[in-house]
Design a protein around this nucleic acid. Structure first.
Lengths: 205, 205
DNA sequence: TTAGTTTTTTACTGATTAGTACAAATAAAG
DNA sequence: CTTTATTTGTACTAATCAGTAAAAAACTAA
């Protein structure tokens, strides 16, 4: 057990969480490779040696920022999985994505989608990490749908993998649309149409 | 009128179109910023001064490569707009995207989506050019749907802008799914569900 | 053969990249 | 006060970035 009050040495002059939040905003806007260290240190209000001492290196800083992104209070993905029915899961997922991707209080789109989609070879670790995160999210959604299927909410021949992919395509596509400048209202219209498509899959036949 | 046979000076030792095709493949895989000039020159089989003499600079080379991408024979977007009915337009668009995004004969996904989604400030011109291309494609699709609406294929209160956004979300989302490693079969399943959603919008009410 | 034109090759530029060495500064502990 | 531990700011490194200067090479025209 380390006692955070009895630390020896010069005290850190910045707040770790606030600095990470600032780093997230920079990565959110410019992506992993597009964000330079001067971009990051300026936004975080610290200099390079402080950044490296606190977060390791650029790659680790990015992964910690993404972790913060996924667990921030207004994240919609994990809470949507907890909805009581498959329809409500889809509804919360789609309208949550519509609201989050166009939220004016932060950069448009999704860090997990845009952070390192195409990149140089030197960013391949980060690219793969984001692919894993996207795949993992889709798998969680698929399992939630399979649970609903076992509960009789979906037809016996429903393909939960395809349905999960369909919903994830909506979320990821909305992320691109948001980067294009689409409004929250427009994304809500898309979510409504997509939800109709999902609803039709809940009926047998 | 310039006669290509009576050119004076040392003849170019490479094929312009083939070199551009190679550049496209590199940009397709690594994006605009992720593709370095050594990456490009090595793939194109030429050295830097030849590249600059033939194509201007990296930005112009990228834009020419994207133009080649959009007009290549197997591109699906523009041909889909020529289908006789709105339903067939959507059908060709969705299944065309499913096939193209997972085609094993070239890198996965879409250059227009992935080429410069998040980037540094110095790539903002390219980023904006791709946003314009995506918006323009969506607008063309919207106009095609409005034409179908005028022909009585869609309900009188149909929102062609929202419908076009919905279809574009499918295509752009599939591009991300393809980058995740989704198979062509899986993308076809998604296209089938999405088409059902679109079909439901063709009925009044 | 000679002059004129264009491409190719090599070698370079200045700027920027991520990352670090080192000493001054600031705290607690003895 | 001194010692010890940690963070800070400055200044640096080596590598890589896009882009170019200059001369040799390869062609046509005269």
């Amino acid at each position: 057990m380390s006692d955070s009050q009895t630390q020896v040495g010069r005290p850190r002059a910045f707040d770790l969480d606030k600095a990470l939040q600032k780093a997230l905003e920079v990565f959110w806007e410019k992506g992993y490779e597009g964000a330079s260290l001067p971009d990051l240190t300026e936004a975080m209000g610290i200099n390079k040696p402080s950044l490296y001492a606190a977060f390791g290196n650029k790659e680790q800083l990015f992964l910690k920022a993404v972790e913060l992104y996924e667990n921030r209070p207004c994240a919609f993905f994990k809470p949507a999985l907890l909805q009581p029915t498959a329809y409500q899961v889809a509804e919360h997922m789609l309208f949550g994505a519509a609201a989050a991707n166009a939220d004016p209080s932060h950069p448009k789109g999704c860090v997990v989608v845009q952070g390192a989609l195409s990149c140089s070879d030197s960013a391949n670790n980060v690219k793969q990490a984001l692919i894993e995160k996207r795949r993992n999210g889709e798998l969680q959604l698929q399992q939630r749908l399979e649970q609903a299927k076992a509960a009789g909410e979906l037809p016996a021949d429903a393909d939960c993998g395809a349905l999960a992919s369909y919903l994830v395509v909506q979320i990821q596509g909305m992320s691109i649309q948001a980067a294009n400048g689409a409004s929250a209202e427009r994304l809500q219209q898309v979510a409504a149409i997509a939800l109709q498509g999902f609803k039709a899959m809940l009926q047998p036949g």
